[in-house]
Design a protein around this nucleic acid. Sequence first.
RNA 1: GCCCCUGUAGUUCAAUGGAUAGAACAGAGACCUCCGGAGUCUCAGAUGUAGGUUCGAUUCCUACCAGGGGCACCA
Length: 526
Amino acid sequence: MLRITITDLIKKTLISLQKEKKLPCFKIPDISVQKPVLQSHGDYSSNVALKIARGVGKSPAEIAKVIAQEMNKLEIFQEVGVAEPCFINFFLSNKTLYSQLKEILQKKEAFGSLELGQGKKVNLEFISANPTGPLHIGNCRGGFCGDVLANVLKKAGYEVFREYYVNDRGVQVREVLRRSLEGKEGGYKGAYIEDLRKRKIKDPEVAAHIILKEQIKPTIEKMKIKFDCYFFESDLYRKKETDKALNFLKKQGFVYEKEGALWFRTTDLGDDKDRVLIKSDGQATYFLSDIAYLKNKFKRGFDYLIFFWGAEHHGYIKRIKAATKALGFSEERVIPLIVQLVKLVEKGKEVKMSKRAGKYITVDELINEVGVDVARFFFLQRSYDKHLLFDLDLAREQSQKNPVYYIQYAFARISSVLKKAQIKETQVKCSQKELELLKEKEELSLIKKLLRLPEIVEDIACDYQVHRIAHYALDLAEGFHCFYQKHRILSEDKRLEKARLALVLATRIVLKNTLDLMGISAPERM
RNA sequence: GCCCCUGUAGUUCAAUGGAUAGAACAGAGACCUCCGGAGUCUCAGAUGUAGGUUCGAUUCCUACCAGGGGCACCA
């Protein structure tokens, strides 16, 4: 991966410059290499000179000059320059681009894979909607983002386990279902409740499992999400894990009694107030289940626990971090991701949803109307901390204009050209000499875009922001459309044709890998 | 009252503290003898307000203004 390579090269250069006494001794900081906005500023750039100038006692310009001079000797670059205010700009040599292109063609579906995770085990819990009814649009966001994050982390070299936590025991769930089945105030309405009533289902816990099986699971399949496990809260009780967790906390001295209830002194561990574990009526709270569940996950050997929560749960973070610390684990191993709420807009007005009134748009309805590819892309585009405005009219009427088609269209075009050229999945054997025929602006620019996939995977594996991949996919598709528009692939010049077909094949590979990560289909025809 | 998130173009969104703030849709215009026009290329258009931190702020800090979401022996 180029960005890592360049970072390493800078580090090596600094060390050798220090050895040669061209630079004084100092501790080498974390070096950041970024992609400049402007092409004229190079393919990559670094502010390392500015960063180390503080501790070195030389002017940044001087330092940058020395580093650039040294790095100019490296073959990977065509040029290493210095620009105001002391950025070091790296221009890749075309030779580097061609060899990287070859690598894509060799690696195929493995292109973009990293060993960043070193096989560490990650538990990714998402959706986990209460089994009281069908999934609604609010569940979509965390669902799709969780699924894609799982894909990306796997690509980055983590061992990923996807989990859905089923609150099948909680008082609230049981109470709501009981009221719903009996048609009482405070219950939910909807066809599925009617159906349960007709089937004479009385037990709320049975109802919960039926809803999970008949409503939620089929929808999840429709969303093209796969879970490795549905974890039942009731199992924690059946196996006495809640008792064990409570006893553990007691032994650690975190538990006290007040007004007939058992409290967990979470304030000792950074929470705003203490929390109840056992209510005065003897019932355990969800929080106790969650602590037992946390313990259970660590016991299963996960290095990191990632959760997707809606914004309404933000207050829960301190609590779960406190529990983590009380259990004796480092809080860095628990990573809660908060996604802001989804607001539904129709005809310019917000649509208020109510589960109680049976008034909400289900995920099934949404996917039936716009298709799973459009739905996935729509929810993937935004960063988690933005409120997501879901415009129903746009999704319904303008699906033709949806950017996901722009991306898929690029793939369809590629397939079409390859078909015409009668090239199947087989490798185009293209020599370095032939690849050197690719020197048009659009060709080189496309190659550079292809090479960014591993960087995107790395970035997401570090900050979990999956929307990066959606934006990358658009950028990649644009790169191909521009190239396609400007230059003919099939031509009389058979050597050039071969080189361009190699580029097209490589684009196909990277586009396919990107779409796979997003869980969006790559159609040969549209 | 306290806590969390957000204020960027007419609209919906981008931009690990970096260089001339990017797209898409909507608007104005151009490109079909040509591998799929669901495409390409032009033009026009934006950082809520006031301070601070520093070589450099859309990004970090403070105050204010505006929107959303939380503050249970629910989760």
